[in-house]
Write a protein that binds this DNA or RNA. Structure first.
Lengths: 303, 303
DNA sequence: CAGTGAATGTACATTTTTGTACTTATTATG
DNA sequence: CATAATAAGTACAAAAATGTACATTCACTG
């Protein structure tokens, strides 16, 4: 009979949090096969079933749910151990340059990163909000958040968070136009979107995907500008739920029929993935994202 | 660069507690080579030195000392995890039969084991105090505490605790006799000891080792009887420090020159070593022994 | 209702970890 | 001062864990 090893708790937590072997594997810098085997082994050692398996992912059993808390204490303390061993906070210094998509940077990280920065006074954090993909290979950034994994290369990449986009209009704008009942009603509206020639990553080409043939009449390379235009009733705009939900005057249009799914990815060089300053920062981002799936998924609009 | 794994904390704790690779290895059911490698790896991952190495054993550095606490929290919580996963306290039932040397049983465990038994109401603990080695192979006991490791066989065995024995006499007895200044003065005294034909384990043959040629004039197979006789001033007796130190009327004789070292060993079948009820009991015994090295070693008498 | 994508599952080659046998070093002992 | 005992260190063989490539399953989509 297999024996229980503390290390497997790390795998347990990763799978519990991501709900998937594959995503957990990326987070643990290994592959789904290994994760699967270690979960099997853990269950065997405990003679208990921790997850329900299905082809779409793993979900915690009631027992697994109960054990999360305990595993998290182990995690917290192991982290503390590692931190103290490395001399604690003081030793964390230097510069980390983050290259982050504008929306995520401004609407999620902007008011959270400073808190982090405070805890590490001698660590200097540089957040570059980008509209072009910044080259990690030329070290223009240490850590990058994008919409896609890179095909190959010496990078560590993990899926950070899925999010969902809907079509929004302001209350005012919608009240001045006939009610939108089906997709075809949209063609008579004005749209706000990205500048087509400047779309630097396929994931941002929303219009082509959701409203093929339509063209935005007001185009900006900045999501902030698009949001402003939408709020001032210029027209309809495709926006992430996690951004739009902060503005009560914005109303989703046909949310059940029309929405898009995207994923944020966290990417960095293999060489630096395990350095303390990178680890601290990426752990911070991941921990801030935890339990925020509703904010990013906008499930309430689909029910 | 190696990466930090939670599992290595188990090795860290074991070495910190036993002070030796070899003993830690037995406790972890592996060998000293593996333990050494995992400590090396841990230190490398943390870029920090946790132990001072020398041929007699490993001792914690100041940093290592500081980290113990954190590692112990991890341990406690990992144990809790394992316990809860297996259904918690309730599932722990059945019988465990312990076969324990009389002295250790009566003078150390007797008033501690009941506490343990209380926490597991449906677990029934049977403590057999033995003067013959009980056969583990015929399952006359599940867990056994002895003075020696068995030569071979399908057993898990670990060194539990070293202890030291001294020659004692009562204050009254010693005051009625001329002062004992050297070993040769002892031959004129009456001795209390084990019945020679009934010494079932070589480790109990104290007299031959410390006072060759002498024979005890009062012999009993029970250490309790020997203690009583010594306290009532019948003569001198070789007693473990951890027992004698509870009786202020007992005075050690030539402690620096004359003392014996012994070790308690914990032995059980490989097959059952990892069952919860065995694990709980042996962990309890080990935890009760922790920080009791002074009581067992009697270092104060050697200084 | 076939095709695509994204997930888990399986088989085998590779790498890593572990254990055994032996060597070396230090302490206690006669 | 040699010898025994006990611990750590080293080299190589055995065993186990890992990663890659491929197969399978299920949901979504046109």
């Amino acid at each position: 009979m297999r024996q229980f090893t503390w290390d497997d708790l790390q795998y347990f937590l990763a799978v519990a949090r991501t709900g998937q072997l594959t995503t957990a594997a990326r987070r643990l810098r290994t592959n789904h096969v290994t994760v699967s085997r270690r979960i099997d082994r853990l269950e065997e050692a405990l003679s208990a079933r921790l997850f329900e398996r299905n082809p779409r992912g793993y979900i915690l059993t009631a027992l697994g749910e109960k054990l999360i808390e305990s595993a998290e204490i182990v995690e917290r303390e192991a982290d503390r151990f590692q931190n103290e061993a490395s001399g604690g906070t003081i030793s964390l210094s230097g510069v980390v340059r983050l290259s982050i998509l504008e929306g995520f940077a401004n609407f999620f990280l902007a008011d959270r990163l400073p808190l982090m920065a405070q805890s590490y006074p001698s660590l200097s954090i540089e957040m570059v909000t980008i509209q072009q993909i910044v080259s990690l290979s030329r070290r223009e950034a240490d850590l990058s958040i994008t919409l896609h994994a890179t095909r190959t290369g010496p990078y560590h990449q993990e899926k950070l968070m899925p999010y969902r986009l809907f079509i929004y209009g302001s209350k005012d704008y919608l009240s001045r136009h006939p009610e939108i009942r089906q997709q075809s009603d949209l063609s008579s509206h004005q749209f706000i979107g990205y500048i087509e020639d400047m779309i630097f990553t396929p994931g941002l080409d929303y219009m082509r995907e959701i409203l093929p043939g339509l063209r935005a009449s007001y185009q900006s390379s900045s999501i902030f500008a698009q949001l402003s235009a939408t709020r001032s009733s210029f027209g309809l705009c495709i926006l992430p739920y996690y951004i739009a939900c902060n503005y009560p005057e914005l109303v989703p249009v046909l949310p059940r029929q029309l929405h898009l799914n995207r994923d944020y990815w966290l990417i960095c060089h293999e060489d630096i993935v395990s350095t303390p300053r990178i680890r601290v920062l990426s752990n911070f981002i991941k921990s801030e994202l935890e339990n925020q799936t509703e904010i990013f998924g906008g499930q309430s609009l689909l029910a």
